[in-house]
Design a protein around this nucleic acid. Structure first.
Lengths: 319, 319
DNA sequence: TTGAAAGCGCTAACAT
DNA sequence: ATGTTAGCGCTTTCAA
């Protein structure tokens, strides 16, 4: 493997001069710099990142740790983060599962974005304690160097449901996500607040799991029930889409018999029949803003205000 | 920052003994090992990955370099790769754009999977030359340590179109992807082979770009044409979905007036109306198999047979 | 069973 | 403008 030593030897200079030249330092004369760079080209030299990172005490890598690679939401956030980091010459490293923990704790990244319910608090806290900035998305966590950016689930859902109540709906159902999901639980709070504020005491509760399949089963269950709600708010779009399919499979018409809404605004919303009304988050922009903050912290070495993503109602046919 | 030195000091042993203990070497006695591990816990010690990687001349990381983070195909391949690597204790590092090149050439990964048309051959070749194994997906590239795994586009498309010809279609169109796309070009070859083998001389050619939007425009164009093909084969599902929407927007019925098929079997195929007949690749399994091969190469230090993914016709309503 | 010391490839302070 | 050298944090050979 070619090292800086080989380059220095071929160019007939010392290692340090080679290093200066390769890092484009003004200290070295134009002539020798050229000679060194030519030697580097000739030997196909590239610096060993591990050695550089060790010496520099920084890697130039930003880690983004997600729950899984599938999923429309992650993709959009990732594309946003990636775009912004690339403009600033930082590398993006996306990982998941146990890899995430390894890369974090072994300090192979200079900063991290956590978008993964399963990654344990203790690891995030420890990484922050070591002096590295971390952004946690959709998660409540406080600690040294920890920044939390979250969707304002309560207000968004509350406003939306209040609007639907004013449109005349009164007989609601809530299709829940997993009970340990931050987003689900806060959306549920907003849902209940809306009913309460409008004096509606009762609603039906359905347990789902954020998946199309889980939503389908609930759809069938509701279709066969004698006491169907006239409006089901679903904690995310995927379960709403499953719900619609379950209802349709039993001949229920939407929104006539049962109105449905979701949360997230994934691509599928536009393709299902009827198209799905939902609360949309601009995930791409969210990613860009988070990356923006990380860059600022890394460059200026000082804390920064967090940006919380903005949501809006995307009115379609399903309610 | 806590280093191995701090742990050694607290445990009252030398650095080397600490290192042995932390790496669970049998050389060190049970009593001292315990003491060292306890010291490590107390100090919240984690090894510095860059230092370890430098010394070991390996990182335990496998890089997967993709064209973009959005896209249903990448997600499934990634999930497959991730699952298998995690079982083997290897870290997955996913990246894109200039980051990919940096991570590769700086040797921050022990092996790589390239699923990105834009990543230049020269960088891949150089990485292979340095002794690292690389899997290139859907790409023709030969070189040291380079393994190429690809969909058998020609046969799949040829068989499919021949089948459709036997079902009675004869008036075909081809909706192309970008002209520099490996997959598009090989699918086109298979398409032409099928027509030729069945004695069909003519077909219409439409230029698309693999996107829904691009497909839509062609759909409108075809709808307004006087000489509509009765069957349009699209080089991927997204353009097929756009095509369907474009045709429908002008009142063309599918498959009655124009039959449509795609390639990939993305989730949306099941949600569009009519549902889309396509050629499906099991991307998740593909990812697992590729990871399997990488693990074998890394462990056994010797070449391995490449696995090419299997495809099959997914018959739905659109043709 | 434990410790001393060299060295992985690089950067940068310091000396020339 | 260029060279010498220490050292980043770790592993491992060699000696005790």
């Amino acid at each position: 493997m070619t090292t800086i030593k080989d380059v220095a030897k071929l160019a007939g200079v010392s290692i340090s001069t080679a290093s200066y030249a390769l890092n484009d330092s003004p200290k070295v004369s134009k002539k020798t710099k050229e000679r060194i760079l030519r030697a580097g080209k000739e030997l196909n030299y590239y610096p060993n990142g591990n050695a550089r990172n060790l010496k520099n005490r920084k890697t130039g890598n930003v880690g983004v740790f997600i729950y899984e690679f599938a999923g429309p939401i992650f993709s959009d956030v990732l594309d946003g983060i990636h775009k912004r980091l690339q403009e600033s010459g930082l590398n993006i490293i996306v990982s998941s599962g146990t890899s995430s923990v390894n890369l974090l704790l072994e300090r192979q990244v200079d900063a991290a974005v956590i978008f993964d319910d399963r990654l344990e608090d203790v690891n995030i806290l420890h990484y922050g304690e070591m002096g590295y900035p971390v952004f946690v998305l959709d998660r409540n966590l406080k600690g040294k160097n920890i920044y939390s950016s979250k969707i304002d689930n309560e207000s968004l859902v509350k406003d939306f449901i209040q609007k639907k109540i004013k449109e005349g709906y009164s007989d609601f159902g809530y299709l829940s996500g997993p009970l340990d999901s931050y987003n689900n639980n806060h959306r549920f709070i907003g849902f209940k607040q809306a009913l309460e504020s409008e004096g509606i005491k009762d609603f039906q509760y359905f347990q789902g799991n954020f998946t199309i399949h889980g939503g389908f089963d609930v759809g069938v269950e509701i279709a066969e029930s004698k006491d169907r709600p006239s409006f089901v708010f679903c904690a995310n779009d995927e379960s709403a889409i499953g719900l619609i399919q379950g209802l349709k499979s039993k001949g229920i018409s939407i929104p006539g018999d049962v109105a449905v809404a979701g949360f997230d605004n994934i691509t599928l919303c536009d393709y299902i029949d009827p198209t799905l009304t939902t609360i949309g988050i601009d995930h791409y922009s969210w990613g860009k803003r988070v990356a923006e903050s990380i860059i600022a912290i890394l460059k200026k070495k000082k804390p920064v205000d967090v940006y919380n993503p903005i949501g809006s109602i995307i009115q379609r046919e399903s309610c």
